[in-house]
Amino acid sequence: MPTPRPYALTIAGFDPSAGAGVLADVKAMEASGVYGLAACTALTVQNDVAFERVSWVGLADIQDQIQLLLVRFSIRFIKIGLIESLPVLLALIQWLKAYQPAARIIWDPVLKATAGYEFHAQPDAALLQAICCELALITPNQPEALRLLPAARPEVAAAALAAWCPVLLKGGHAEGDFATDVLLMPEVRHTLASPRLPRGEKHGSGCVLSAAILARLALGDSLPEACRLGKAYTAAFLGSNDTRLGYHSIAKNHDN
């Protein structure tokens, strides 16, 4: 008999192209050997190259979706993506922690759609600190790090965020032959590099990375190992074809 899979929950937007948001997250989690559950925070009108509009799901409706899952399933690993506002994000995190104090929460700060649509202005620093102090990990790319905490360089902003929670600063927007991510933890710095692919740009790659990391945490890996394996999963996703919508492959090391 296959070993029962741990559960992991994504709380994010619905992308009809299935390249980003809850559909992409569940695909990545399932392919990584975890059973993916989902709650929707927004209905978007988009495809892999165009974003037209978003309709937000209210906090009470998000909570209702999640509450029925929490009654039935043991959920300790949660990822939050696109959400209406940072005050809503903080309220949601506090509500989740009241139900499950041991929950490990990853926030993938979706601040701007690939097609250019902007979701959030620069947040209040005190609000941002309150959010980050509840997180197991935040996964900004370089422009997002600067949006969250304006600084001379993304690395400086990430280091400031790391005073509040672990930070995985994604290097996909940098130049060079390698895409280098940096995991910043208290007094520890891990560098994760992979070759930059010639046609590796994919819609939703940040969603996939954070979901793959969450899956590895649910499977029992340490945070540095989860980030390493999540990046490896994402590299395979980026190299899966020459289109903007990547393919998810079932991991070969899970007999379930």
Rank of each mutant, 00 (worst) to 15 (best):
S17P: 10
L23V: 13
L23H: 09
V26H: 03
A28P: 12
M29G: 04
A31W: 00
A31L: 05
Y35D: 05
G36F: 11
T41Y: 01
T41C: 02
T41A: 02
A42H: 01
L43T: 06
L43K: 08
L43Q: 10
Q46A: 06
N47I: 02
D48W: 02
V49N: 04
A50D: 11
F51R: 04
R53Y: 07
A60E: 15
D61T: 13
I62H: 02
D64M: 09
I66P: 00
I66Q: 00
Q67N: 14
L68A: 13
L70I: 03
V71W: 10
V71R: 14
S74Y: 11
R76M: 03
F77W: 13
F77D: 04
K79A: 04
K79S: 03
G81V: 01
I83K: 01
I83M: 05
S85I: 06
L86F: 15
V88D: 08
L89A: 07
L89F: 11
L90F: 10
A91E: 14
I93W: 13
I93M: 11
Q94V: 07
Q94A: 07
Q94S: 12
A98W: 05
A98Q: 12
Y99N: 15
Q100H: 07
Q100F: 04
P101V: 08
P101R: 10
R104K: 13
D108E: 10
P109Y: 04
K112L: 06
A115L: 09
F119Q: 06
H120T: 08
H120K: 11
A121I: 05
P123M: 05
A125C: 05
L127N: 07
I131M: 06
I131H: 02
C133K: 14
C133L: 12
